[in-house]
């Protein structure tokens, strides 16, 4: 049964990389069910991330957000800050797709704080870029400028010309 779980996860990932998101979702749901049977929280967390990602490409941003929230919840339980940061970034982008810029900014800010804690300059730069955009969308150009400046500073530091 444990091997079946891993096989389902791998099949889900393969379908995903082939762009077959409906099939990917079915396998990741099966993987999730088996992870729950075993109480395997790490595998459960991976399944939620994979399900969130697949739903983005199915255009079901609302469903993706719910899966990413489960990922976030489990990453905190598992004390995995890198995954927590990634979940916040995914949620920020998903709420941008849902045109909810306030909530997008909340998650991008959470991502920024964790990236700073982890001294992840690339993550910090991306968070600042996203926050600049979110504040522009919310009609707060002064705050947007602060983050755009920070984004420029980090991009120069890490040599990202684009």
């Amino acid at each position: 049964r444990a091997a079946q779980g891993r096989a389902c996860g791998n099949l889900g990932n393969t379908h995903y990389l082939l762009g077959s998101f409906v099939e990917a979702t079915a396998f990741h749901k099966e993987r999730l069910a088996i992870a729950k049977e075993f109480g395997d929280k790490a595998a459960e967390r991976r399944a939620y991330s994979n399900l969130g990602n697949a739903h983005i490409f199915l255009g079901r941003f609302d469903v993706a957000a719910e899966y990413y929230k489960k990922t976030l919840q489990l990453s905190r339980q598992l004390k995995d800050q890198a995954v927590e940061a990634q979940a916040c970034y995914s949620l920020g982008n998903t709420y941008t797709l849902l045109q909810d810029h306030e909530r997008a900014a909340e998650y991008h800010l959470r991502h920024l704080l964790i990236a700073q804690e982890l001294a992840d300059r690339v993550g910090e730069g991306r968070a600042c870029w996203s926050l600049g955009n979110a504040y522009v969308s919310m009609g707060s150009p002064a705050q947007a400028l602060t983050f755009a400046k920070k984004h420029l500073e980090i991009s120069q530091e890490i040599g990202d010309r684009s």
């Binding site: 779980g5 891993r6 996860g9 791998n10 990932n13 995903y16 990389l17 595998a43 991976r46 399944a47 991330s49 994979n50 990602n53 983005i56 490409f57 970034y89 995914s90 982008n93 941008t96 797709l97 991306r126 870029w129 996203s130 955009n133 522009v136 969308s137």
Partner: peptide, 26 residues
């Protein structure tokens, strides 16, 4: 409006491009 819209789309699009190849492996 158009310029701001493009800026917004750009950062999400970059994320989605990365996401296409992002799988959590077993």
């Amino acid at each position: 409006g158009q310029r701001l819209h493009l800026m917004q789309v750009d950062s999400v699009q970059r994320w989605m491009e990365d996401l296409k190849l992002m799988t959590e492996c077993e």
